[in-house]
Amino acid sequence: MPGVVIFAAVFSGALSPVSAWSEEGSAPAAIEGAVLLSAEELVATFEHHPRLVMIDARLTGDRRQGYIEGSVSLPNTETDCDSLARVLPGFDHPVVFYCNGPKCRRSYVAVKRARRCGYTRIYWFRGGFAEWKAKGYPYLNE
C-alpha cells in the first residue's frame, strides 16, 4: 500500500452533502466511537496496521496545498456509505480521517458518516494536515 512507503522511509446525522459551515468554527475535541490520534500516534498506528486506509476529507482545492502520501481523496461532501464501500474492504477495516486541522470540521463530518454507515475501526487525526506539516513530516504536492 502506498501509505506504508512514507512511514517506512520516515521511521525505518444525515448523509447529505455538507455546506460551507464544515470549515467554520472548531472541530470537537473528540468523537464518540473514534480513536483520536496525534501525528506521532498516526505513524505508530500505521506500523501496527499497515493496511490502514487514510482518507483526506478536504476539498480538492485544499489537497493542492499538500497531502499525506498514501491518503485517498474523499471530500466530506462526497462521503456516504457507497463511497466508503469503494475504498474500504469491510466495516471492521481500520480507517483514519483527516482534514486541514482543528478548525476544519470536514474530517469530523466524514467520521460521523462512517459511524452511521457501520464502520467500527475508525481513527481521527484531528490535527490534520496542519499538524503534519508543522511537525516537519514529509508530504506530497499535486
Rank of each mutant, 00 (worst) to 15 (best):
V87N: 12
A39R: 13
R115D: 01
G127C: 01
V111T: 09
H49L: 07
E32W: 00
P2T: 05
A130P: 02
L15N: 08
E41I: 10
K103Y: 02
R51I: 01
Y137L: 15
Y123A: 02
G128P: 03
L37C: 07
P50M: 10
H49Y: 09
A30R: 05
V111I: 11
T60G: 06
I122H: 04
Y137C: 03
R126D: 03
G33S: 08
L42C: 01
G127A: 02
E32N: 09
S19F: 09
A110Q: 09
P2S: 02
P102M: 03
Y67K: 09
L88G: 14
P94L: 06
E47Y: 02
G13W: 00
I68K: 04
T45G: 05
W21Q: 11
V95D: 01
R63E: 10
E69N: 11
M1Q: 13
H93F: 11
I68L: 11
W21A: 10
G25R: 07
R86I: 00
T45Q: 14
N141L: 14
A8W: 08
V4G: 07
R113G: 01
L52P: 04
T60K: 12
A134D: 13
L74V: 09
Y139G: 08
R51P: 02
Y123H: 08
F125L: 15
D82F: 03
A110S: 14
F46A: 03
S83Y: 06
T77F: 01
K103I: 03
R113L: 02
E32G: 04
G66V: 12
K112N: 15
E78C: 04
T45Y: 03
Y139H: 13
E78T: 10
P75K: 06
A20T: 09
S12I: 03
P138N: 13
A20N: 13
S38W: 05
N141H: 12
N141D: 10
